[in-house]
Design a protein around this nucleic acid. Sequence first.
DNA 1: ACTCTGACCCAAA
DNA 2: ATTTGGGCCAGAG
Length: 107
Amino acid sequence: MPRAGASRDDRHQRILATIDAIPAGRVATYGQVAREAGLPRNARLVGRLLASLGPRSALPWHRVVNARGASSLAGAAAREQRRRLAREGVRVGPDGRIDLARFGWRE
DNA sequence: ACTCTGACCCAAA
DNA sequence: ATTTGGGCCAGAG
């Protein structure tokens, strides 16, 4: 249940902790992260927070993809994400999509 | 205070 | 498979 009075920082904390819990070799969607963090319907907030952190963050940001199993990034960032995922054994199809039934976190 | 916009999602059509 | 409308939050202008 989405705590009614959760502060901005609380939400950030939960989101960061959730992302940090995604195991290597697996990916989670923005919406899934939001739900796991107890903040359903806040997928957008997850994306916003990640964007503010930047690609140099210590968090496994590369393990977060959109609901279609594809990267929501472009250019260099997208390539960096693919590189990191490949190193963990996550296979990206020719259409740029990842089989969530196979690499999705808890699926 | 208000509008735009965005690493998003989903049910319905 | 694609489009549409609504839901959400927050930073920027």
